[in-house]
Amino acid sequence: MLLESDWTALWITFKLAALTTVILMLIGVPLAWWLAFTRARGRVFIEAVVALPLVLPPTVLGFYLLITLAPAGPIGSVVTAMGGPALAFSFTGLVIGSVLYSLPFAVHPLQNSFSAMGRVPLEAAATLRAGWWDTLFTVAFPLCRRGVLTAITLSFAHTVGEFGVVLMIGGNIPGQTQVVSIAIYEHVESVHYAQAHILSAGLLAFSFFLLLAIYGLNRRFTVSQP
């Protein structure tokens, strides 16, 4: 059955995916809102940047992240100088990498549903005395619940499924940065096919049922392929 190191990898994967999803919602909602409603010219530029992880090989993103977050890199050196933890090859580094890599999977469904909703319900709420936060939680989120749900599920699932970025930025440190996808890779490398099977089949089933749930809840949803 599962080794102890496999259980640890599962726990790290879950922790990473959950944390990434929470952070993505905090960043993704305002970003998608801005993209959906702004008339600013810079919109196209930001949209292209957000969509980059869809087309870039994960190794490219991982490579640049590694360089920036390394102790000598532009961000890594600042963090180290301020007494912060090392970012490269750490769980924190993994979270940063995952957030960037899964950003379009949070922003696109949110932006699409905000655009589809339009300004009118928001204006109607304002004429009915609802302030901004009130409108967000009582009008925008309920009307865009499909988009919100899709964004949450896809952020989580996509983070669980990543490999390249995680390997580049996190390395493969059991108990710290070894996630399930990397644990499977290692089992295969050391010809432990039985272990690889258990984890792979588990991940396959998990991903399938998650997607099944999204499609069931949201028939109109179209998956954007990386």
């Binding site: 009118v120 204006e123 109607a124 709420a125 009008v139 309920p142 009307l143 619940r145």
Partner: peptide
Amino acid sequence: QHAALFDH
């Protein structure tokens, strides 16, 4: 003009 009711 188009009522703008909350459909939820």
